[in-house]
Computed example of a mutant assay.
Amino acid sequence: MAFAHQVLCSLLGFALLCLAMDRHHEDAFGRAPSRRRQQGLRALAVLAGLASTWTLWGRADWGLAWAGWSAQLSLGALPVVAVATWRARWLPAASLCAAATAFLLSLGRWG
């Protein structure tokens, strides 16, 4: 469950960073983002990135934990690249699905 949570948080973070870019935001929503929206998306992306490291804390094997986390970052980025490339309009919905699923996993795991 921790693996899925990390991948979903990584996916969410990359999707939010992607949507904070003018070109991708315009592809997804049909208009460029406002400065305030861009900053908000970037801030949420940082929070999602920090949430993806949640399961690293308290582990004895830090080397393996960081290596696994970097692999999970790559797994989270791959679907974002695919969706942003071929179906940019689906990116906001994919972000919401990833956020909701990660939240539900966090409730089941740590709640």
Rank of each mutant, 00 (worst) to 15 (best):
M21L: 14
G68I: 01
C18Y: 00
E26T: 11
S34Y: 11
A28H: 09
A15D: 03
A15T: 02
R35W: 14
L56A: 08
A43D: 07
E26G: 12
G40V: 08
T55K: 01
V46A: 15
R31C: 10
P79E: 03
L75Y: 04
S52N: 06
S70C: 14
R36L: 12
P79S: 05
G68V: 02
A65L: 00
S70F: 14
S10M: 14
A67L: 12
D27P: 01
R36C: 12
L64R: 13
R59F: 03
A20H: 05
W62N: 00
L73S: 06
G63C: 05
L16H: 07
W54F: 06
L17C: 14
W69Y: 02
L11Y: 04
L44V: 07
W66F: 06
D61H: 00
W54M: 10
V46P: 04
L12K: 10
R31G: 10
H25G: 05
S10C: 15
M21A: 15
W66E: 01
W62A: 03
R59S: 04
L50W: 00
G30I: 08
V7P: 02
V7Y: 10
L50H: 05
W66A: 12
L78H: 06
A43F: 09
A32S: 15
L16Y: 09
R37S: 13
L64V: 03
G63F: 08
W69E: 00
P79C: 07
L73V: 10
